[in-house]
């Protein structure tokens, strides 16, 4: 069997606003659009993904928060309605998700072997979080590939950003071992924004783009610093300064997604493909991808 590999890594933020703005048939509310810079960026990345041969999408989401270890979805199918607890006016999404349980179990076992506290989630009534759904829908709206969802262990809350970084790195290395042993081609997804301070009020028409801007300038400066380092292929340095950025901007990377993905990918030193940046209710959102294949790697923006 050929060695498994990561064929693409994606930083894929999950504000429900972008699904709301798309008006897919699965989502109940209707919108007049909005957040085009992000959505068009997602469309471009989704087109690239269609041209890549892969077996499953593995997503680490900060909206499945676990304090007792790291958990993995462990049933083949989840059909339900996902209503966003924060923005229920925007996101009430009827989903039908297929899970690559074999891959999930392999990752679970590899992580456990590495000393990470783990748990398979086998309760059929469990509701898949909206972070998973938003990122996966925007990357693959046909939902024709199975996914693996990994929970976000809250080591930032319990210990520190530095401990989160170290634990997420260990998880990334374990996941990579499982991928290699599986023989599968895998797309990794870190589902989160960059700076993450929200406005606490909402416009009467949420998609009124005249009201949308970053929460404050320091958030923007940090976001641009990271995007520039991504362009320059400085991902080891990005992970090194991430604890400081999280402290300064409440960055959603505190959930471990980027640290996990970069460790699994061996801290790429090649340029990231940047697909878009835009604020959503004050938070900073970048869409980026790391393509290990130099022949297909692009300068997008």
């Amino acid at each position: 069997m050929a060695k498994g590999e990561i064929v693409l890594g994606c930083l894929a933020p999950h504000p429900p606003h972008v699904v709301y703005a798309e008006n897919p048939e699965q989502n109940e509310p209707f919108s007049e659009g909005g957040w085009e810079a992000l959505r068009w960026g997602y469309h471009s990345l989704a087109r690239k993904l269609k041209g890549i041969d892969y077996d499953c999408i593995v997503v680490l989401t900060p909206h499945w928060q676990t304090y007792v270890g790291t958990h993995f979805l462990g049933l083949e199918r989840f059909q339900n309605i996902s209503v966003d607890p924060i923005f229920p006016n925007l996101f009430r999404f009827n989903h039908d998700i297929t899970v690559d349980v074999e891959m999930a179990e392999a990752m679970h076992d590899a992580a456990a072997e590495a000393g990470i506290i783990t748990k398979m989630m086998r309760n059929p009534d469990f509701r898949v979080d909206y972070g998973t759904i938003v990122s996966c829908h925007m990357l693959n709206s046909s939902w024709n590939k199975p996914i693996v969802t990994i929970s976000s262990n809250r080591s930032t809350s319990y210990y520190s950003n530095e401990v989160m970084n170290a634990q997420a790195a260990a998880l990334g290395e374990a996941v990579m071992k499982a991928i290699e042993a599986s023989g599968k081609k895998v797309v990794l997804v870190a589902s989160h924004s960059l700076s993450h301070r929200h406005f606490v009020t909402e416009a009467p028409l949420p998609e009124d783009m005249s009201r949308e801007h970053i929460y404050n300038h320091s958030q923007y400066v940090w976001d641009m610093k990271l995007v520039q380092m991504m362009r320059e292929g400085k991902m080891r340095e990005v992970i090194d300064i991430l604890p400081e950025m999280i402290e300064q901007t409440m960055a959603e990377a505190e959930g471990g997604g980027l640290s996990w993905m970069m460790a699994a990918m061996g801290y790429p030193d090649y340029p990231a493909e940047i697909y878009g940046y835009q604020s959503v209710i004050g938070t900073g959102n970048a869409i980026a991808a790391w393509d290990p294949n130099e022949a297909t790697r692009q300068l997008v923006l």
């Binding site: 499945w64 928060q65 676990t66 304090y67 007792v68 958990h71 748990k119 989630m121 086998r122 309760n123 009534d125 469990f126 509701r127 929970s151």
Partner: peptide, 15 residues
């Protein structure tokens, strides 16, 4: 609805 806890899903469902 039927609720399931994020951490303690193995304890059961809560309809």
């Amino acid at each position: 609805f039927t609720h399931v806890d994020d951490d303690f899903h193995f304890l059961g469902s809560m309809p």
